[in-house]
Structures are given as structure tokens and as C-alpha cells.
């Protein structure tokens, strides 16, 4: 149907749909504004203790004094630790998933170990990791990898195993080698699984980095949160949490952007 040829009913339908979208957005903003305003007012009137609960205006103040707190440096440290952990976790996890898909024997042997490792809270490995790789950035990155690795393996392996058996059979009728089946069928068919594991991983890597920074660090947002708590600078804690939220959001958004680029260049549904 062409643009200038839309029926009144359709116009009304589209208008209603648009209105609903705006209404939802407006309500979301209103809730946030009300929450912040209430927080600010209650703190100003001394109904809640701003020393313990902090206060939006004080958070903002800390935020704008970025340089005096070295906030930028701390953000950078957390971001690069996360990105390195994310990249290594994703690549290593995908590689291991490919090996397990390739060899049914290795997959069967490693199954119980993977199940146990998957349900084990990786933070519990913290002290061991520190002893092994030393207290510092490497320990934090290893923690990020430990948290994201097993999930990546299981998620990708599950996708590989569920590849349409008939399509694999079709490739076999052309005498395809196992490597050809992997590169020409299994991997392209699981592109969406892979992207999903990226989305999960970026969040998990951040969890790993922050819990690593809680345990050992001299810098990073996790360090700032622990430090702020110890010296009762709740403004600093709240500001760090807020920034962490923004960092997490931006990282997720960049994975979404990457997804768009991949899907655009390689049409896939």
C-alpha cells in the first residue's frame, strides 16, 4: 500500500500504536523523576539520613567532580578488564564448544565436569585464583573468564548439537568433510546462538570483574564501591553504582550494535 493511499482506520491504528509507545516512555520517565525527587526531598527534610542513604544532589556533585576522585581512571580500569575477560571468555568458550562438538567422546567425558563447574559459584574460586595468578589485574581477568567461560561452552555446544540433522545429511550427500560441515553449516546456522552468548557474556564478565575487584584491587569501580563503603563515603558508593549501571548499559548496547552489523552483512533470520 502506498503512502498517500492509507485508509482512515489504518491511520487511527498507527496513531494509537504511537500514542501507546509514548505513554509507556512517559510513565517510565515519570517514575524515575518521582523517585529521585522524593529521595532528594526526604533527605532535605531529614526524614532519611543522607549520610547513610546519600542523596541525588550529592551523587551528582561527586559525579561532576570526576577528576578529583580519579573516577575516569577507575571507569577505564573496570572497562578494559571487562572487555579483555569478555573477549577471552567468548573466544575460548566457543573454541572449546567446537572441540566438544567435534569429538563425541570428549563431550561425553567432560559432561559431568561441566555440569559441576557450571553450578559452582565461581567467586568461591577467588582465593585460589589470587594464589595462582597473583593479586592484581590478572586475577580479576581470570575471575571474569571463570564466570563467563562455562556458560559460553554450554550455550554454544547446545546450539551446535541442535543444528538441523537433515541439513547436515544434505551436506553429507555431497561428501562434505567434518570441517566443511562445521564451517559451512554448523557455524553459520548458529550465528544467532553465538550473538546471544555474547549478550549474556558481556554482563557476566562485568559481574566477574566487579567481584574480582571486591577481592583484590587498587583501582576500578568495584574497588571504589568497597573503599567507599569502608570509609562511609556513601556518595561515592552510590555514584559508582550509578556509573556501573551506565557502563553495563553501554556495553550491552555495543553488543546490540555488533549484532545489527553482523545480521546486516550476513542476512540471517
Amino acid at each position: 500500500m502506498s503512502e498517500n493511499n492509507i485508509s482512515i482506520e489504518r491511520k487511527q491504528y498507527l496513531k494509537k500504536k504511537r500514542q501507546k509507545k509514548y505513554l509507556i516512555l512517559l510513565t517510565q520517565i515519570a517514575i524515575l523523576v518521582c523517585f529521585l525527587a522524593l529521595w532528594e526531598i526526604l533527605a532535605n527534610f531529614g526524614i532519611i539520613d543522607s549520610f547513610i542513604m546519600s542523596q541525588p544532589s550529592r551523587i551528582l556533585n561527586t559525579f561532576f567532580n570526576l577528576t578529583s576522585n580519579d573516577l575516569l581512571m577507575h571507569i577505564w580500569v573496570t572497562t578494559y578488564e571487562t572487555i579483555i575477560g569478555f573477549l577471552i571468555g567468548t573466544l575460548l568458550g566457543t573454541l572449546i564448544a567446537i572441540i566438544l562438538w567435534w569429538s563425541d567422546f570428549i563431550a561425553k567425558v567432560s559432561e559431568p565436569f561441566l555440569v559441576v563447574l557450571n553450578s559452582l559459584p565461581k567467586v568461591a574460586l577467588g582465593p585460589v585464583i589470587i594464589i595462582w595468578v597473583g593479586a592484581g589485574t590478572p586475577a580479576i581477568i581470570v575471575m571474569a573468564i571463570a564466570i563467563s567461560l562455562i556458560v559460553t561452552i554450554l550455550e554454544n555446544l547446545n546450539g551446535f548439537m541442535k543444528t538441523d540433522k537433515d541439513i547436515i545429511k544434505m551436506a553429507k550427500t555431497f561428501n562434505a568433510s567434518k570441517f566443511q560441515i562445521l564451517t559451512k553449516v554448523v557455524i553459520p546456522a548458529n550465528l544467532s546462538t553465538f550473538i546471544n552468548s555474547l549478550k549474556v557474556n558481556i554482563g557476566l564478565s562485568l559481574v566477574g570483574v566487579i567481584s574480582g575487584e571486591f577481592l583484590v584491587s587498587k583501582a576500578g569501580l568495584g574497588y571504589l564501591i568497597v573503599y567507599g563503603g569502608q570509609v562511609f563515603k556513601l556518595d561515592l558508593v552510590m555514584t559508582s553504582v550509578l556509573i556501573l549501571g551506565i557502563v553495563a548499559g553501554l556495553m550491552y548496547a555495543s553488543v546490540l550494535l555488533l549484532e545489527k552489523i553482523i545480521l546486516h552483512t550476513k542476512k540471517f533470520k
Binding site: D166, K169, M170, T173, N175, V185, P188, F268, K269
Partner: peptide, 17 residues
Amino acid sequence: ISSKIGYMLQKDCLLEW
């Protein structure tokens, strides 16, 4: 698997990508 033989399955098995 002989190169003289072609095989067609029930599903068309086209690669969507």
C-alpha cells in the same frame, strides 16, 4: 558416497543465510 549419485531429502534443506 559416490559422485555419480545425487540425493534429495523430504525437506528442501536450503541454507537460509
